[in-house]
Design a protein around this nucleic acid. Structure first.
Length: 519
RNA sequence: GCAGAAGUAGCUCAGCUGGCUAGAGCGUCAGCCUUCCAAGCUGAGGGUCGCGGGUUCGAAUCCCGUCUUCUGCUCCA
């Protein structure tokens, strides 16, 4: 049922020019999608809403646009190189996945346990006369086991150094390591899992350096923290925002645009005085959920999911989850990242990344609260919660994409009721007035009702129809997408009427008054 | 990666006991009609039946291989 909804969203998104499978004429590329003529407008509008609300409406937040390529040391400092570079192996029976090196190390640990046991036995037998070092050097059982360990370690080191994954698998088989879950020794080949996409910098193959496409935008902010703080003369607390693409080699990238290998993030890192992170964390949690709720996608569609198990760098973390067609899933993360990142960059770069606090009269590395939202996920949240099929009184149904008006790709469609009698010309005149403020669309083909329905499905919030009376009294009808109600208004009043309902400014004002209600 | 399902027109699908030039509905385009909620009329365009091979006089249909997509399993925004 909900799978059905996701399917409907996917096909609707394609049919109305929102999202196409990437490289479709070549059969597509797995989990990669292109945004179409309407998709790019919606996406841009989401970005504008986020950017305006974060950067323009908060005096203490500024934006940057850091490069996707970054110095390789960045990823050493952030932990991405070490944490996401593992040889993986699957057990075919239990379907469990393990790190190959961990499996071998666990095996070694078992042998070590035997030695420990042997030592305990020795201690019991010889009592106070027991010489542990001597025992370890002479006891034949210990020696045999230690030799085994040394041999395994040697082989493992060779295999890892030569990066020969086949040897690693051979070693696992040779040791007879079984899956702890299924107990079977039915293993797949060992595969290297690299979270980061690598490429080469430098046009000649030799002498070029391996660099990575960033797996998150946050590090671009951290490495620029001091630049922004100094040149912007920023005082703590302040934030740096950024919208940009990031790349991750997901093991499994699926569920439409929910999890892609190439995706876009909207992140803000807020730098604060150590010790104040609790209050700021709460503040940003509230601010962000409020941002979401101002869009009216349904209050019930959101929930917080607080992390109990925290990453090594975080001292608090929560997800804002959204009720996607696949269920509640993470849409945005709010994390209290402590000073982990800046400290790591201090160590790796050798540069001081401290802030002198005149009030405290001392320097410190700021703590950081991060808000990080997936732009593509936001897109999916909006699309999936906006797509409705309505049963009408006459028994027919209509498909309507109830996008938040301020985010809709096309704001107004203008129709001449018929194709002659000067109505098309009048309609064009109206568009020529409105086009400077709003994305407009002209349509004269097909019966008027059909044109309305087409715009409903495309998500256009308003349709204006020029009829014969329009020529005499300069009035038109304006139809609301959601209520299907029509109103007769003066052409001159159109910019004001439409502006109130569809402009980003009016949405931001609404957001601001909601935000004022938060302490 | 493993397991399962599916690939025929832009979309949804029929055709699959092998046999005329591969069809329908919707959509698209052109013309007629001139009408305020998808449904009037006329016509047009659009398909190497995912790809490759085999069996056969003959393959969308049977066999083999292959590719792609979708769904589940772990991590994340």
């Amino acid at each position: 049922m909900s799978d059905d909804l996701l399917k409907k969203v996917i096909s609707h998104a394609k049919e109305y020019g929102y999202i196409f499978p990437s490289s479709e004429i070549y059969d597509g590329l797995s989990a990669t999608y292109d945004y179409g003529q309407n998709g790019v407008e919606l996406k841009n509008n989401i970005k504008k809403y986020w950017w305006s609300s974060m950067v323009n409406m908060h005096e203490d937040i500024v934006g940057i646009d850091a490069a996707i390529f970054m110095h390789p040391k960045t990823w050493k400092a952030s932990g991405h190189v070490d944490a996401f570079n593992d040889p993986l192996i699957d057990n075919k029976d239990s379907k469990k996945r393990y790190r190959a090196d961990v499996l071998i190390e666990d095996h070694i640990a078992k042998i070590e346990a035997k030695i420990t046991k042997e030592v305990a036995k020795g201690l019991k037998r010889f009592g106070d006369d027991f010489n542990k070092e001597e025992f370890l050097k002479t006891n034949p059982n210990v020696l045999r086991n230690q030799a085994k360990i040394d041999e395994i370690n040697d082989k493992m080191r060779d295999a890892f150094n030569s990066e020969d994954l086949g040897n690693i698998k051979a070693l696992i088989e040779e040791l007879g390591i079984a899956c702890p879950v299924s107990g079977s020794k039915n293993w797949t080949d060992v595969r290297q899992f690299n979270l980061m996409f690598s490429t080469e910098m430098g046009s000649v193959a030799e002498g070029s350096n391996t660099i990575y496409l960033r797996p998150e935008t946050a590090q671009g902010i951290f490495v620029n923290y001091l630049n922004v703080q100094k040149t912007g003369r920023k005082k703590i607390p302040f934030g740096i925002a950024q919208i940009g693409k990031a790349f991750r080699n997901e093991i499994i990238a699926r569920q439409f645009i929910f999890r892609m290998r190439e995706f876009e993030q909207m992140e803000m890192q807020f730098f604060i005085k150590p010790g104040t992170q609790k209050e700021w964390f709460e503040k940003w949690k509230e601010t962000r959920i409020n941002w979401h709720k101002a869009l009216n996608l349904g209050e019930d569609n959101y929930r917080f999911h607080d992390h109990l198990k925290l990453a090594h760098y975080a001292d608090a973390a929560t997800d804002i989850e959204f009720n996607f067609p696949m269920g509640f899933k993470e849409l945005e993360g709010v994390h209290s990242r402590t000073d982990f990142d800046l400290k790591a960059h201090e160590e790796h770069s050798g540069k001081k990344l401290q802030y002198f606090d005149p009030q405290e009269n001392k320097s410190y590395v700021p703590y950081v609260i991060e808000t990080s939202i997936g732009l593509d996920r936001m897109f999916l949240a909006i699309m999936s919660s906006s797509l409705k099929e309505e049963a009408l009184e006459d028994g027919s149904t209509r498909t309507v994409l109830k996008l938040p008006a301020a985010l809709a790709p096309t704001k107004v469609a203008v129709f001449p009721l018929t194709k002659k009698d000067g109505l098309p010309e009048k309609a064009r005149e109206i568009i020529n007035e409105l086009k400077f403020d709003f994305n407009c669309l002209y349509e004269e083909k097909d019966a008027i009702g059909k044109r309305y329905r087409r715009q409903d499905a495309a998500g256009t919030p308003f349709c204006i129809t020029v009829d014969h009376d329009s020529l005499n009294d300069n009035t038109v009808t304006i139809r609301d997408r959601d209520t299907m109600q029509q109103e007769r208004v003066l052409i001159n009043d159109l910019p004001k009427i439409i502006g109130e309902k569809v402009s980003l400014a009016s949405l931001l004002k609404k957001l601001e008054s909601r935000e004022a209600a938060i302490v």
